[in-house]
């Protein structure tokens, strides 16, 4: 999913690298491909301002000064679980490659010198993933605690009656909750609800 460059909602992407030139070059490359990319020299500085201006995707180096790419990924996820992270490194190792994807939820692990096509597709994928995550979060955020319980059971495939039995409610109440859920999430049926929950 690539956004046209003239579209106003260009995706915010941060590039973190302690090599200023490389960070700026990658950011400019991403800007040319329709993202609102910005380079950062210091991950700690970015963390301090991140909450006010979250991004959809972060491209980060692994070997950096005080805070390495993995530590930075952990801390940025605590602030924003819906951000996509892409790692890049000049010291690739198999162990790090596995860790970056399995433990730190990275979308990709890129070796320097960067493969441009792969970088762009990783960032595009990350932006799309992040957008979807955010929309799910936005839509389900409005649900009340009880509606949330009903939602969770419904998407597991339980019928209204079964949900009523499990939660100790009357089928009529479940029916009402279900209507509220559909209204709040803007969906039109069980299939879309299930898609939302994925």
């Amino acid at each position: 999913m690539t956004l046209p460059a003239n579209q106003p909602d260009r995706a915010a992407v941060y590039v973190v690298d302690d090599d200023h030139d490389l960070g700026a070059a990658v950011a400019r490359l991403l800007c040319r491909h329709g993202h609102a990319a910005e380079p950062f020299l210091d991950p700690v500085m970015l963390l301090s301002v991140y909450a006010e201006a979250p991004a959809l995707c972060i491209v980060t180096d692994i070997m950096m000064g005080d805070l390495d790419g993995f530590g930075f990924a952990d801390r940025v996820r605590m602030i924003d679980p819906a951000v996509a992270i892409v790692f890049m490194t000049a010291w690739p190792t198999t162990a790090n490659a596995v860790d970056s994807v399995r433990r730190y939820g990275g979308l990709d692990y890129l070796e320097k010198p960067l493969d441009e096509t792969r970088l762009l597709s990783a960032v595009d994928e990350g932006v799309a993933w992040s957008r979807r995550q955010r929309s799910i979060r936005a839509r389900t955020a409005a649900l009340s605690a009880r509606e949330r319980q009903v939602f969770d059971l419904l998407v597991q495939g339980h019928s209204n009656k079964a949900v009523a039995d499990i939660l100790g409610l009357s089928p009529k109440t479940v029916e009402d909750h279900r209507a509220a859920i559909v209204a709040k999430t803007g969906t039109n049926g069980l299939a879309q609800l299930i898609a939302l929950a994925r």
């Binding site: 400019r28 320097k112 441009e116």
Partner: peptide, 17 residues
Amino acid sequence: IHEISQPLSTLAIEAKH
């Protein structure tokens, strides 16, 4: 190799542009 790969990344991106 490490020292080269860093500036080379920049160079390759800018050259392509």
